[in-house]
């Protein structure tokens, strides 16, 4: 296995996976506790429109995709902030429309285009150094922002009404959070694909939540878990010549299932102890 590390693409894949894990640990935690996983999914899919835009107008990838995703995300945030009850419908519309727009724009763009498969499952094995640096910078900025607003974000996530009463700028923070989700999602899709982004954003935090006494611990645990999943997944894909993104997902899902079964089996034992105690 270790001989794989002599290949630069493998080392880059590892670095990219680890950076993606770190970002997902922090942002994924906020997504799960704020119950905006579907929203994150909508942003991820709608961002395909940004790719179409970049190719059609010949814009640099980052500006086109990032710009479109942030715009779509903030648009959805504005509408859903006032109307929580129909939020998921609005997200569903933007989800589909963004994707359709991207596909149509790519149809209209002459020449070779990025194919959908690599967008769905990423191209972790072909990550250029420039992108690694971008991811590192993004990761640092995200962590600094979350650290700066930690207590406000915590308050907003746990008890928004109380936070608003205490003067926390809840509306601003909500838009900031959505913006951070959009930026993270776009960076990570490039590396691990659309399907994997949602899995990495939701599975590790879901597992970590039960064992976390604070939001910070949940973020750290999620980061560690997703890093472990990424590592194991890459090992499997290298050893058995499988798609890397899908391998990582399967490791995450397997652990998720095992944790659920373990929890379920623990219940009768706990009840017994309560009865005897």
């Amino acid at each position: 296995m270790l001989e794989a590390l002599q290949f630069e693409f493998m080392r880059n894949a590892l670095m990219a996976g680890l950076l993606a894990s770190l970002i997902c640990g922090v942002i994924g935690t906020l997504v799960v506790v704020n119950r905006i996983a579907f929203f994150a999914g909508g942003i991820a899919h709608a961002s395909y429109g940004g790719i179409g835009l970049s190719f059609f107008f010949g814009l640099p990838y980052l500006i086109g995709t990032m710009g479109f995703s942030i715009a779509a995300a903030l648009f959805m945030a504005a509408i859903t902030y006032k109307n929580r009850h129909r939020a998921d419908t609005v997200i569903g519309v933007v989800w589909a429309a963004g994707m359709a727009l991207g596909i149509l724009l790519l149809d209209l763009t002459p020449g070779y285009n990025v194919d959908l498969m690599s967008y769905l499952f990423g191209s972790i094995l072909s990550v250029p150094n420039a992108e690694l640096w971008q991811m590192l910078v993004l990761c640092i900025l995200l962590i600094l922002t979350v650290a700066f607003y930690y207590n406000d974000l915590l308050a907003m996530s746990y008890d928004e009404e109380f936070a608003r009463l205490r003067g926390v700028p809840v509306r601003l923070l909500y838009f900031l959070l959505i913006g951070m989700v959009a930026v993270s999602v776009v960076m990570i899709i490039r590396v691990v694909g659309l399907i994997l982004v949602i899995a990495l954003l939701t599975i590790p935090p879901y597992i970590a939540e039960k064992y976390s006494r604070s939001l910070l611990i949940m973020m750290v645990l999620s980061g560690i878990l997703s890093a472990l999943f990424t590592l194991a997944g890459l090992c499997f894909s290298y050893s058995f010549n499988l798609t890397s993104g899908a391998s990582i997902i399967m490791v995450a899902t397997t652990v998720f299932s095992l944790v659920q079964i373990f929890e379920y089996c623990q219940k009768p034992f706990r009840k017994k102890c309560d009865n005897q105690g």
């Binding site: 506790v33 930690y150 308050a155 746990y158 936070a163 039960k210 006494r213 604070s214």
Partner: peptide, 30 residues
């Protein structure tokens, strides 16, 4: 507020819940 059980799984300690009361508008570093 009324005790609604929506966030009973939330990873937060009782000390952190009480500290929430110390938040105020315009605090530079949270």
């Amino acid at each position: 507020p009324q005790d609604v059980h929506i966030n009973s799984r939330f990873p937060i300690s009782t000390l952190d819940v009480v500290l929430m009361g110390r938040l105020r508008h315009g605090r530079k570093l949270s």
